[in-house]
């Protein structure tokens, strides 16, 4: 029996879809069977981020309405053994699926997959409610900005109210240089404010744009910092105590934080 994890944030554009694709690919690289579900109905993106946009036949709404079997809608990613995508519908809207239907689809998926990862739409309305309906765990993505952290706080409250306790935090687009200059909130600042456990930190990295342009993931890129950060997150999800990587290279700013994660 697999595990259903929703990736959410409240605010749009903070990196949910990027995180879903890369964490999913990272888990597949470790040999696990992974299903990615694009719950952003009407604004589907996960397919293009993964470079699978030309292979869609059926989608989530077709499955929910019984127009096809679940198996028929799943797209197998040929680059990663074990990675599959259930795409969102592009022409419908968020009310096309009901929370009960999402729950049922997640139940079916986790019978076959080790990890079911749901890419949540922005906002806290129907699309959010659908996306979290079948989830057992939640990852909240934020960037080190006031608006994103504020929305993350709101979402954490809603997740806890929905019995998705102890969501884990991913801080995306951190710029170590700005942190050093005192112009960006630190990892510690954000954790202290949100009072949640940290799952990982992704640095701002042009390589993400480059790989996304090609429909590739950055986890495949052995040299990129963000790729390493995503691989580390995948390993932490698998229960390995991976220390926070040294975003500064010359270090010391992050050494104290190692403890937080290293002890997990």
């Amino acid at each position: 029996m697999g595990e259903v994890i929703v990736i959410t944030s409240g605010k749009g554009g903070v990196g949910k879809t990027t995180a879903t694709a890369n964490i999913g690919a990272g888990l597949a690289l470790r040999g696990y069977k992974v299903a990615l579900v694009d719950a952003d109905i009407g604004l589907r993106n996960l397919d293009v981020v993964l470079g699978l946009e030309n292979r869609i036949v059926y989608d989530l709404v077709d499955v929910a309405h019984g127009h096809c079997r679940l198996k028929q809608a799943l797209i197998k990613d040929k680059r990663f053994e074990g990675l599959h995508l259930l795409p969102a519908a592009q022409t419908k809207d968020k009310t096309a699926v009901k929370p009960e239907q999402m729950k049922e689809i997640c139940l079916q998926l986790k019978e076959e997959f080790d990890y079911v990862i749901i890419d949540c739409p922005a906002g806290i309305e129907q699309g959010f409610k659908n996306a979290i309906a079948g989830a057992e765990k939640a990852i909240v993505v934020t960037t080190p900005e006031v608006s994103a952290v504020r929305d993350a706080d709101r979402v954490i409250g809603l997740l806890e109210a929905a019995e998705l306790k102890e969501p884990k935090l991913v801080i995306n687009r951190l710029r170590p240089k700005m942190v050093r200059q005192g112009d960006m909130m630190t990892i510690e600042d954000i954790i202290e404010i949100l009072a949640v456990d940290l799952l990982g930190v992704i640095p701002e990295d042009e390589q993400i744009i480059v790989t996304t342009n090609r429909g590739d993931t950055v986890v495949q890129d052995q040299r990129s910092r963000s790729g390493e950060a995503f691989r580390n997150i995948a390993r932490r999800i698998l229960g390995e105590p991976v220390p926070l990587m040294d975003l500064e290279r010359d270090g010391n700013l992050f050494t104290r934080l190692r403890k937080i994660i290293g002890l997990r």
Partner: peptide, 14 residues
């Protein structure tokens, strides 16, 4: 540094 300002604003808004 603007981060102290950000932190304080965030604290209040939350």
């Amino acid at each position: 540094g603007s981060k102290e300002v950000a932190k304080e604003r965030l604290r209040l808004v939350l």
